[in-house]
């Protein structure tokens, strides 16, 4: 895979989103409105979930002080990664706040970062591959039926995903991983350390007690 380096705005946000995932964000801080403007004109932006804005605003170099992160993330602890997203829809909420729907197109490594005069972060990033993007394995298993049920019962989620690849096993496991209520540090371990099979096993053991 060719690794092209790109400079993109960074939105520090505790949202776990894998390639193919969609989420809705509300934007009102001036620097992030500016980010949306840049993102629409250029190539999207990066959601960076390991974020803590420290007081000295040296945010990108500050790692969350979480003991679990150390135990759960034994590999590549120094690699910063983010979710590269594109804006696929936008609207104004009832309260007049800008709402954007973003879809993750790939994960990226954040190689370096800086801040502009409006305190908006930018990072030089390169794409990294992830199992959720691998060639689809056709599936009709119960995990995907169960995900179909979630879409059926959740209007908001159903509207967000115009196309649902519930026949694609990797896509299904990735969406389940986003939905399941576990610690972000644990979800993150499925980016660094865990394979698709492990992710699938993990999701199944929660959904079906297998």
């Amino acid at each position: 895979m060719q690794k092209v380096k790109t400079r993109l705005p960074i939105f520090p946000l505790p949202v776990f989103i894998l390639p193919g995932g969609i989420t809705r964000l509300r934007i009102f801080e001036p620097r992030y409105l500016k980010m949306v403007k840049i993102a629409t004109q250029e190539q999207g932006f990066v959601i960076w979930l390991n974020s803590i804005e420290s007081e000295d605003s040296d945010a990108i170099n500050t790692k969350a002080e979480n003991p679990d992160l150390k135990t759960m993330e034994p590999k590549e602890p120094d690699t910063l990664w983010g979710s590269w997203v594109e804006i696929i829809n936008f609207d104004q909420g009832d309260d007049g706040i800008l709402e954007i729907d973003v879809q993750c197109k790939s994960l990226v490594n954040i190689l370096s970062s800086d801040q502009d005069e409006d305190d908006l972060h930018f990072g030089v990033v390169s794409e990294r591959s992830h199992w959720s993007q691998e060639i689809e394995q056709s599936t009709t298993d119960t995990l995907s039926q169960s995900l179909d049920n979630v879409f059926d019962s959740n209007t908001m989620l159903n509207k967000l995903y115009v196309e649902k690849a519930t026949h694609n096993a990797n896509w299904v496991v990735a969406r389940w991983l986003e939905l399941i209520p576990v610690d972000l540090a644990i979800k993150t371990s499925f980016v660094h350390s865990h394979s698709y099979e492990e992710a699938k096993g993990f999701v199944q053991s929660i959904i079906f007690n297998e």
Binding site: L13, L25, Y32, P181
Partner: peptide, 22 residues
């Protein structure tokens, strides 16, 4: 920053929602 962060929609289910769903 908190307001921005709290302004996003948690797409994650709560344990209660998962329990109800399953």
């Amino acid at each position: 920053q908190q307001q921005v962060v709290k302004g996003f929609y948690f797409m994650e289910m709560s344990q209660e929602q998962l329990a109800v769903h399953l």
